[in-house]
């Protein structure tokens, strides 16, 4: 394993590995034909690449049999995929690049960017999210700026409202940096404020309709005698939820 990871994978081999990763995820195992179809390359070149990958102990490959990833191959592929996704998200969310274009660019960038730089991209996106000076609406005005004429109107107003928001936030939650947890972890009698509801679907919609919007304060009242649904107090009324559903509510204990 040490020998194989010493020499970095070539760009095209990374693409092959990534393709196999997605095919395996979809169909449990890949065939040479799937790979050639996906990457739009000739069958003959696939065979060569597969041999190279097998030599590096990344895939289990015997001619005419299905192809699967080795454990090492799996983790390598996951790293490549993550690089791709981070880059793609950054292009879309931060730079307001259109989705298709972002996908294409990320495909090519992922080979050139080192892991350290990838982590910086992640950190920067998080920083923008958190920093009051460069929050989501700041990014949005950047997107607007890219599409429309450039002007510097309203800077003063924007800064003022930013300051106001910062003051508001420090008023409502004294310690912004406390780590979040899920609602099922909150003990009886304790309060927490909703950060977000993960996932989607009917439960999220129902919770939103019933007032469990971001920032709402929830108090865990009790657990049912049999240990499952929990009773909450929210907006002055009582609501019951199963623990597995409470797990999807990310909260910040108060």
């Amino acid at each position: 394993m040490a020998a194989s990871s010493a020499t970095p994978l070539s760009e095209s081999l990374e693409d092959y590995l990534e393709a196999i990763f997605w095919i395996v995820k979809e169909k449990q195992a890949a065939r040479a034909k799937d790979i050639s179809d996906r990457l739009k390359v000739a069958r003959s070149s696939v065979t060569g690449a597969l041999r190279a990958l097998a030599e590096r102990n990344l895939i289990n490959y015997v001619p005419y049999d299905v192809i699967t990833l080795t454990r090492h191959g799996q983790s390598t592929a996951e790293k490549i995929v993550r690089r791709h996704e981070v880059l793609r998200d950054f292009l879309i969310k931060v730079l307001s690049v259109e989705e298709k274009e972002a996908d294409k660019a990320a495909c090519r960038m992922e080979h050139a960017v080192t892991n350290e730089i990838i982590e910086r991209f992640v950190a920067f996106a998080e920083f923008i999210d958190r920093c009051p000076r460069a929050n989501a609406s700041w990014l949005q005005s950047f997107g607007y700026h890219c599409e429309h004429e450039k002007s510097a109107n309203g800077c003063e107003k924007c800064l003022e409202s930013t300051l106001e928001n910062v003051r508001d936030q420090s008023m409502t939650s004294s310690s912004e940096t406390t780590e979040t947890t899920t609602l099922d972890e909150v003990k009886c009698g304790e309060k927490a404020s909703i950060v977000r509801i993960s996932g989607s679907g009917s439960i999220r919609r129902r919770l939103l309709d019933m007032g469990a919007t971001n920032g709402t304060i929830i108090e865990v009242e009790r657990v049912a005698p049999l240990g499952d649904p929990i009773e909450l107090k929210i907006k002055g009324y009582h609501l019951s939820l199963r623990k597995e559903e409470a797990k999807r509510i990310i909260v910040q204990p108060i």
Binding site: E231, Y237, L239
Partner: peptide
């Protein structure tokens, strides 16, 4: 099974 989100009325 669908979510169990139910109000407990006073």
């Amino acid at each position: 099974t669908p979510p169990f989100v139910m109000e407990l009325p006073p």
